[in-house]
Design a protein around this nucleic acid. Sequence first.
DNA 1: CTACCGGTTCAAGCGAGCTTGAAGTCATTG
DNA 2: CAATGACTTCAAGCTCGCTTGAACCGGTAG
Lengths: 139, 139
Amino acid sequence: MLTIGDVARQAGLRPSAIRYYERVGLLPEPHRVGGQRRYDRDVFTRIAVIRMAQEAGFTLEEIRTLVSGFPEATPAGDRWRALARRKLPEVDAMILRLMTMRRVLEESLMCDCLTLDACGVLGWSSAGTASTQAKTDLG
Amino acid sequence: MLTIGDVARQAGLRPSAIRYYERVGLLPEPHRVGGQRRYDRDVFTRIAVIRMAQEAGFTLEEIRTLVSGFPEATPAGDRWRALARRKLPEVDAMILRLMTMRRVLEESLMCDCLTLDACGVLGWSSAGTASTQAKTDLG
DNA sequence: CTACCGGTTCAAGCGAGCTTGAAGTCATTG
DNA sequence: CAATGACTTCAAGCTCGCTTGAACCGGTAG
């Protein structure tokens, strides 16, 4: 049984973050010994999931849905699957954007432009078509 | 010559955002007519660059360096290239994380687990090795 | 017994990225 | 001339994801 400090040290975050996660429903309320939180080792799995999802661009709100075990009162893993299904295209879109960015970065390493928008790298002609380009997806 | 309202409408953001970008140095100060800002169409290119970089996870601070034409007082595009070089691996890492997330989402659509961490999909055994896993990269 | 260490709560603060509101300016329209 | 509407500045507010500080509690060591 680990104290919040142990968990924090091993997971590489601050106790305050762990309490915060608990407050917003990302972590379950642990049992307590004399008022103090005691954690089981599988809290690390949970934290790792949270972190990964966070790095993948999910909000804590979304992660809460991902991660919390809607115990009864819910169809099944249907809720989680629904979210996953909804999120997949977003993740794909994100990957695409990042790959575009990657290309831009890489190609711009090879040219002499002073600024990004003075540079042809983007494939945009720097004016004219720009307004069309400007409304790509973001909504 | 476009007013700030025109630009905002066409770019899909609010005038306040445009003024904000100007304040933090993402957009150059436009000329003014009777105190009001007037923009050239190439502002849309700039805005599109900003948006893309933002979606790719750059902070406005970084984008400022990316986008602003450090006119004199700077070696060349060296500064921008330096940033690009520094950012490339980060972008790559981000892409990798997203692909992991994608895999998790996709595979979890195919299993019956109620929660993510009850599920084997992650490849983590749900305890034991977790603490090791927990410290992947984040720093 | 006292000190100290690490836990506890709660409210407030912070940085990023904007938005909102108040108060004023300016051009056009009736 | 007065009203309208889009602009202006400036300061303050808001959301997210935490952190920090004040004040307190409990267990162990000297």
